[in-house]
Amino acid sequence: PEEVRRLVEELYRKGVSPEQVKKILKKQGIDEREIEKVLRRIG
């Protein structure tokens, strides 16, 4: 979803590592598979 992409990109631009991005967003209840999809697209 758009909102997940925005959150991931925001953290990524701040220099947060992909592993940390995953941890942070998982705590917020976001599906890990969604996060990984976005990270793959960015990375």
Rank of each mutant, 00 (worst) to 15 (best):
P1S: 14
P1F: 14
P1E: 15
P1Q: 13
E2N: 10
E2V: 09
E2M: 10
E2A: 11
E2F: 06
E3Q: 11
E3R: 08
E3T: 10
E3L: 13
E3A: 11
E3W: 10
E3D: 12
V4I: 14
V4Q: 02
V4F: 04
V4C: 03
V4R: 03
R5V: 13
R5A: 13
R5H: 10
R5Y: 13
R5P: 03
R5G: 08
R5Q: 13
R6M: 09
R6L: 09
R6F: 08
R6T: 08
R6V: 09
R6Y: 07
R6W: 08
R6A: 11
L7K: 09
L7W: 06
L7Y: 05
L7H: 04
V8G: 01
V8A: 07
V8T: 02
V8R: 00
V8L: 04
V8F: 03
E9S: 04
E9W: 05
E9Y: 05
E9H: 05
E9N: 05
E9P: 00
E9F: 03
E10R: 06
E10N: 07
E10F: 06
E10Y: 07
E10P: 02
E10M: 07
L11C: 02
L11N: 01
L11K: 01
L11G: 00
L11D: 00
L11I: 03
Y12S: 08
Y12V: 15
Y12F: 14
Y12M: 15
Y12Q: 10
Y12T: 14
Y12K: 06
Y12G: 05
Y12N: 06
R13D: 12
R13W: 12
R13F: 13
R13K: 13
R13T: 11
K14S: 12
K14W: 06
K14F: 06
K14L: 11
G15A: 04
G15I: 01
G15F: 02
G15H: 06
G15S: 04
G15M: 04
G15T: 01
G15V: 01
V16P: 00
V16D: 04
V16M: 13
V16H: 14
V16N: 10
V16Q: 09
V16L: 10
S17H: 11
S17V: 08
S17L: 10
S17N: 10
S17Q: 11
P18K: 11
P18F: 10
P18L: 12
P18Y: 10
P18M: 12
P18A: 13
E19L: 07
E19M: 07
E19V: 06
E19P: 07
E19H: 11
E19N: 09
E19Y: 03
Q20N: 13
Q20M: 14
Q20H: 11
Q20R: 09
Q20V: 12
Q20W: 11
V21E: 00
V21P: 00
V21Y: 01
V21S: 02
V21Q: 01
V21K: 00
V21M: 10
K22W: 05
K22R: 13
K22I: 15
K22D: 02
K23F: 04
K23V: 14
K23C: 09
K23S: 14
K23N: 13
K23Q: 14
K23A: 14
I24M: 09
I24F: 05
I24E: 07
I24N: 04
I24W: 04
I24D: 05
I24L: 09
L25V: 01
L25S: 00
L25W: 00
L25H: 00
L25T: 00
L25K: 00
L25Y: 00
K26F: 07
K26R: 12
K26L: 15
K26M: 15
K26A: 14
K26H: 10
K26S: 14
K26Q: 14
K27G: 14
K27E: 15
K27Y: 08
K27I: 11
K27W: 07
K27C: 06
K27P: 06
Q28W: 08
Q28E: 09
Q28N: 08
Q28I: 13
Q28S: 11
G29S: 04
G29K: 03
G29P: 01
G29E: 03
G29Y: 02
G29N: 06
G29F: 03
G29T: 01
G29A: 03
G29D: 03
I30H: 10
I30A: 03
I30M: 11
D31G: 06
D31Q: 06
D31N: 08
D31F: 02
D31I: 02
D31Y: 02
E32Q: 07
E32I: 07
E32K: 05
E32A: 07
E32C: 04
E32Y: 03
E32L: 05
R33F: 07
R33W: 08
R33A: 14
R33Y: 06
R33Q: 13
R33C: 05
E34I: 12
E34A: 08
E34W: 06
E34K: 04
I35A: 03
I35Q: 01
I35H: 00
I35G: 01
I35N: 00
I35D: 00
I35P: 00
I35L: 06
I35F: 02
E36H: 02
E36P: 00
E36D: 14
E36Q: 02
E36M: 02
E36A: 02
K37D: 15
K37H: 10
K37M: 08
K37N: 14
K37V: 06
K37G: 08
K37A: 11
K37W: 01
K37E: 15
K37L: 11
V38S: 08
V38Q: 13
L39F: 02
L39D: 02
L39G: 03
L39R: 02
L39H: 03
L39E: 04
L39Y: 01
R40Y: 03
R40D: 15
R41A: 15
R41H: 15
R41S: 15
R41M: 14
R41I: 15
R41Y: 08
I42C: 05
I42E: 05
I42A: 07
I42Q: 05
I42L: 15
I42V: 09
I42R: 05
I42T: 04
G43V: 15
G43E: 15
G43H: 07
G43M: 03
G43F: 01
